[in-house]
């Protein structure tokens, strides 16, 4: 039964056995091809194994099937990892501005060299409680030539 597969999947996730997690997610998808949890687990596990290409192709095939799930954040992250920065920003556009979307946006802007915009997003993010944010903020400020602030 599918519950046993999810129990197995959950165990692999807890043990950080991400390649195994991908295999079990695929087993779920072979019996329930549109299962959102299984697709999400597969995409996240692929990202955690650094298989960014495969994560993106999994997202694309879900999109081709017109599944009603929003993979925009994962997609934006994968595109960022592939240095497809404009496409990554595009994928973030429709999403609500939360600390996680703003964090990714700021990293993309940093790589694009858009330091003023990057610093701007960081300053909004400072209200949230992301511990190591200052490290990125300092980097952005240095490159923006604002190290005196």
């Amino acid at each position: 039964p599918i519950e046993d597969l999810f129990t197995n999947l959950n165990r692999h996730i807890e043990r950080s056995e991400f390649e195994q997690a991908v295999k079990v997610a695929d087993q779920v998808l072979s019996v329930a091809p549109n299962d959102e949890d299984a697709i999400r687990c597969k995409v996240v596990a692929l990202i955690k194994c650094d298989s960014i290409d495969k994560a993106l192709s999994t997202i694309h095939s879900a999109q081709r099937q017109n599944l009603p799930f929003d993979f925009s954040y994962f997609k934006a992250y994968c595109l960022y990892r592939q240095n497809k920065l404009d496409e990554a920003l595009e994928s973030l556009k429709g999403l609500e501005r939360t600390s996680e979307t703003m964090l990714l946006e700021s990293q993309i802007l940093f790589r694009l060299g858009k330091m003023d915009a990057c610093v701007d997003v960081y300053q909004k993010l400072q209200k949230s409680k992301i511990d190591t944010l200052e490290i990125n903020l300092v980097a952005g400020l240095i490159l923006a030539g604002k190290s005196s602030q």
């Binding site: 129990t7 959950n10 990202i47 964090l103 300092v138 980097a139």
Partner: peptide, 21 residues
């Protein structure tokens, strides 16, 4: 060059499977 940590990576999370097991 300053290093930008990939903090967004930490936001990539598995869904809760609690109700699926």
């Amino acid at each position: 060059n300053p290093i930008v940590l990939d903090l967004a990576y930490n936001c990539i999370d598995f869904p809760s499977l609690e109700n699926r097991m």
